[in-house]
Simulated assay, not measured.
Amino acid sequence: MKRADLVTRTRIGGALAGSLLLLSGCSSVTAGTPRPVGDLGSGGSEQFADVLQECEAVGDEQIAEAVGADAVGRGFFGAICRWDGIGVAGPIKVTFNWFETGTLEHERAAFEHLGYAVAVIDVSGRSVFQVRQPADPASCGVTAGAPAGGVFGWWVTEPGGGVDPCDAATRLAGLTLNRSA
């Protein structure tokens, strides 16, 4: 056998071995049971459980009324949805989040880790968290367990002082809980 043939075979063998090693290193196994989109694996309202429609949990007109704005404009929609409005005292920012596999315990731990003030309040007969950033009295959030699974939260920021952001976030959480019941 010629030296050139031996070198070629060695290179091909090395390339094949490297390719097999690379391919085997890219495979992985994920534990769990696959579920179709929108299946939260628990009971609850089908109206709220449509994962692709979480930003529709409360209508734009209801959001505007809850925060004291003439109207709200829709922003980014995804796991976190945003609206901007103008109230009597200026701009208002509204944020809605829904994490389909989240827990209230995890959310509370995260808020406390960030140094936020967390209080348990009642909204529509349910215990929920009211969250405040101590350094930002113009912002307030309410986080609740969603009947169909996971957690949702509303944050309202009203720097002009036209509405109480905690009252607005609480009203939005109540609307969401009433819709999802």
Rank of each mutant, 00 (worst) to 15 (best):
S139M: 09
R132Y: 02
D136E: 12
C140H: 06
V131E: 07
E107W: 05
F96Q: 15
L104N: 01
E100L: 06
P147Y: 10
A135S: 13
V94L: 10
A148L: 00
G102Q: 09
G102D: 12
A144C: 03
A110T: 12
S139A: 11
A135Y: 01
Q133N: 09
P134K: 04
Q133A: 01
A144W: 15
W155K: 03
P134I: 02
L104G: 13
W98T: 04
L114I: 00
F111V: 03
F99W: 09
V142S: 12
T95K: 10
V142I: 12
T103M: 04
L104C: 06
W155Y: 11
A148H: 14
R126F: 10
P137E: 09
V131Y: 10
G125P: 10
A138M: 05
G102I: 02
W98K: 10
E105M: 07
E105C: 04
A146D: 09
G102L: 05
C140G: 09
F152H: 09
D122C: 02
L114C: 01
T101N: 12
E105K: 07
W155V: 12
F96W: 14
E100F: 05
T101D: 14
F111M: 12
F111T: 06
A146N: 11
G149L: 05
F129M: 14
V94Y: 06
F99S: 13
A110D: 14
T95V: 15
D136M: 02
V142N: 08
F99T: 14
V118N: 05
P137Q: 08
A148K: 05
E107R: 09
L104I: 06
G125D: 13
G102W: 06
P134T: 07
V131M: 04
A117V: 13
P137F: 03
V151Q: 01
I121E: 14
V118W: 05
F129T: 02
W154G: 08
P134M: 00
G115A: 06
A138N: 08
A138L: 03
F111Y: 15
W155P: 00
Q130T: 10
G102K: 04
T95M: 14
W155N: 13
L104A: 01
S124C: 02
S124P: 02
A146S: 12
Q130D: 13
V94M: 00
T95H: 03
A144R: 02
V123K: 08
S124K: 02
P137K: 03
V142P: 09
T95N: 13
